[in-house]
Computed example of a mutant assay.
Amino acid sequence: MQGFVISVARLSVWLVVLSIIFVPLERLYARTPAKWVRPQIGNDLFYYFFTSLVPAALLALPLALVAKLVALIVPAGLHAWVHQLPVWAAIVAGLVVADIGSYWGHRLSHEWPLLWRFHALHHSAEHIDYLVNGRAHPLDIIWVRMCGLVPVYILGLGSTAGAGPIVPAIIAIVGTLASFFVHANVRWRFGVLEWLVATPAFHHWHHSKHDHINRNYAATFPWIDAMFGTLYLPKQFPADYGIPDPVPTTIVGQMIAPFAAAPVPERTR
Rank of each mutant, 00 (worst) to 15 (best):
I171T: 12
I213M: 10
L149H: 04
P168A: 14
S179T: 14
G175P: 12
Y130L: 01
W188I: 03
F202M: 13
H127R: 09
I142F: 00
W195G: 13
L131R: 03
S208H: 04
H207L: 14
L157D: 04
G156Y: 02
A161K: 13
W195H: 15
I128Y: 01
W195Q: 13
H210V: 09
C147D: 03
A161V: 11
P168W: 11
H210I: 06
H203P: 04
V186Q: 03
G175F: 06
H183E: 02
T176S: 11
W188E: 05
H207D: 14
I213H: 08
F181V: 08
G156E: 05
T160K: 13
H137Q: 02
N185A: 01
T160G: 15
P151M: 07
A178E: 04
D211A: 13
T176H: 09
L155K: 01
A198T: 06
V152N: 04
A201C: 15
E194N: 07
H210D: 14
G164Y: 03
L131M: 14
E194W: 10
D140N: 05
N185I: 06
A201V: 15
F190A: 06
L131E: 14
H183V: 06
I141D: 04
A172G: 06
G175Y: 07
T199P: 11
A172E: 11
W143T: 07
I141F: 08
I142Q: 00
G158K: 05
T160R: 15
N133E: 05
F202E: 11
L157Q: 02
R187P: 00
I213C: 12
F180E: 12
F180L: 15
A184H: 00
L155Y: 05
